[in-house]
């Protein structure tokens, strides 16, 4: 099997790389819900901020995803 190590590397890259962002996104969601429950009139602004933080955290996860595919090809 050619390139088996790189395939293994790809799997590990995405697998381990997704742990952090997943926990992060969960925390963002939880904190947003908590803040919205505390102060319902701020819900609009909170939602917008949540999306921004979401986009940035997801990017880190996607870095791992892309790296996996890059490694698979190498």
């Amino acid at each position: 099997m050619e390139g088996s190590l790189s395939v293994l590397g790809a799997g590990l890259a995405f697998g381990i790389g997704a742990i952090g962002p997943a926990i992060g996104i969960g925390m963002i969601g939880a904190k947003t819900i908590e803040s919205m429950a505390r102060q319902p009139e701020m819900a609009g602004k909170l939602q917008a901020t949540m999306f921004i933080a979401l986009g940035m955290t997801e990017a880190i996860a996607l870095l791992g995803f892309v790296l996996a595919f890059v490694l698979m090809g190498a």
């Binding site: 990017a59 996607l62 892309v66 595919f69």
Partner: peptide, 16 residues
């Protein structure tokens, strides 16, 4: 770099 990679990774990974 992060700006570029964030956008690229989102689009590329979405298509994949």
């Amino acid at each position: 770099i992060t700006l570029g990679i964030r956008l690229y990774a989102n689009m590329y990974a979405g298509h994949i």
